[in-house]
Amino acid sequence: MEFWRVPLDAQAIEISRGEVHVIEDRCKGCGYCIEFCPRGILAFSARFNKKGYHPPEVLQPKSCVNCHYCEIICPEFAIYSVDLSSLQPPGL
């Protein structure tokens, strides 16, 4: 995206990145995380979990901004995201 004017702090702003984790066997397939992900990066997988539901999978892992909405809308404690920077040592 091109800016007409570049914000003065454009260099300082970091878009947070997250990594989504799914505890597949807890999922009951309600689809809330998929429907309400602001980046639209989730979809039902073709797999079945232990209970016979299709858990979500991450289609575009790099697009996750770690907003945690999937985590807080999930009624099942089955999906959550973690700050990617906290997982990797700096410089990796």
Partner: peptide
């Protein structure tokens, strides 16, 4: 999961139906 320490994970999955709102309110 950030709430793992506050749930009795040996009792999860819970009894609430798919799409039921209770789990979300409970997690909140």
């Amino acid at each position: 999961h950030p709430l793992e320490d506050l749930i009795r994970s040996d009792r999860i999955p819970h009894i609430w139906c798919p799409g039921c709102g209770i789990g979300t309110a409970f997690a909140a």
